[in-house]
Amino acid sequence: MSEQHQQPRVAVHKFSSCDGCQLAFLNLGEDLLALTERLDIVFFAEAGMMNESAEVDIAFVEGSISTAKDAQRIRNIREHSRYLITIGACATAGGLQALRNLAKSDDWVQAIYTNPEHIDTLDKVSPVREHVHVDFELWGCPINKNQLIALVNSLSLGVLPFEETDKLCMQCKRQQHACVMVTKGSPCMGPLTRSGCGALCPAFGRDCYGCYGPAENTNASALGQRFDGVGLLSTQISNRYLSIYSNEQAFACTGQGWNEES
């Protein structure tokens, strides 16, 4: 790549979310300086740069689609972006907000807000892929800096990004942690969950709660049976599956099944 090449233009957008995935950029530290040498960040909500309709090479999108305005914004972003990448559980899979899809959300709105007439949301919370074409999805709640660096490099070099699809157990065993389910009977979601986090929870002796979402080829029902075997109540099993990824088929079926048992 010669120095004369125009640098890729990047935008970071926010929808319904906690901003945690945008923080992965700010947490890059020195690597952020290295990346800004190679990228022009033209829009970054968390860092204060605002220009939603700028033409960009890479648009990173955080957050789920909750309102009619969100749905309109994401189409506008798609039209102005060469690659659109979702970052984190909300944009990729609906995230925590999607829990309201399982409840009578109107009742909650009436009960919680003093002036419920100001609340104007869509009936369902949905991931970005249900609205526009997504080129690549980064899973995690939140994502981490290694995923971002690998993706930016792949796109700028023109190669397919590496998709982490293995079970977390693979990463956990490479770090040689003793399995918390086998040694303590902890209800670990590792055997269903996508690796990439670095096995953070098992490293501290606790069970994975699935924040990186479903891996490929999951057997959610067999693990649910096992959780039942180690003494979890039906509601506890259901909560394991329906917290962050209630909108993902791989977790939702088993989670709802145990919900009906309770």
Binding site: C169, M170, K173, N219
Partner: peptide, 14 residues
């Protein structure tokens, strides 16, 4: 077996 197996790779890792 596949109905019980999690395909998690713990067996091959240990």
């Amino acid at each position: 077996i596949a109905e019980r197996c999690l395909s998690c790779g713990n067996c091959t890792s240990v």
